[in-house]
Design a protein around this nucleic acid. Structure first.
Lengths: 87, 87
DNA sequence: GTGTAGACTGGCGTCGACA
DNA sequence: TTGTCGACGCCAGTCTACA
């Protein structure tokens, strides 16, 4: 549809917030998470800022590295998304 | 690396099974799900057969079309994945 | 420790068609 | 109704580098 005004998707913003929060709770740096998940650090940075959309496999890799279930990650994402859409 | 005989990822197989099961439970055809989610029908077919990996946005679109929470979809995926890895 | 930019490769996702 | 095929655009994801 109207992709002219490329504003970032709220889902990606919510995912970024979720990822960053969990990472910090676990006390990891982006670089450590990159090592554990084998996802490029610069890409993790972009994910946390809601600039890119991960694939399912990337999502699962990150969840594993964070020792959290993907479904739990999605639950938190939904929670963050609610907060964003209520504003 | 370089697996000549590209065996499919178990995660994608599990996702495909999950997607197909939920779709059938809702009584949708691939074409109907395609209309609701605005994902190409041929791509949905490939997803159900574990041949492709969806992005997070595609995953959420499909979940919405199926009137199920993404976190619930992931829970079922984890269940199916357990069944696959136990064999 | 993080954000970003550029260049690059592979694969996500679309479209049309046919069994 | 679904699987698959070919063609293709665009973006996921990598890598290097710098503030």
């Amino acid at each position: 549809m109207s992709k002219k005004n490329r504003e970032k998707d709220l889902e990606l913003i919510a995912f970024g917030i979720t990822l960053k929060n969990i990472r910090k709770e676990k006390g990891y740096t982006q670089e450590q998470l990159s090592d554990y998940s084998r996802i490029d650090r610069s890409f993790i940075s972009e994910l946390e800022n809601g600039e890119k959309a991960p694939t399912l496999l990337t999502l699962i890799s990150l969840a594993k590295a964070l020792r959290i279930k993907p479904s739990m990650l999605m639950q938190i994402l939904e929670f963050e998304l609610d907060k964003l859409t209520q504003k």
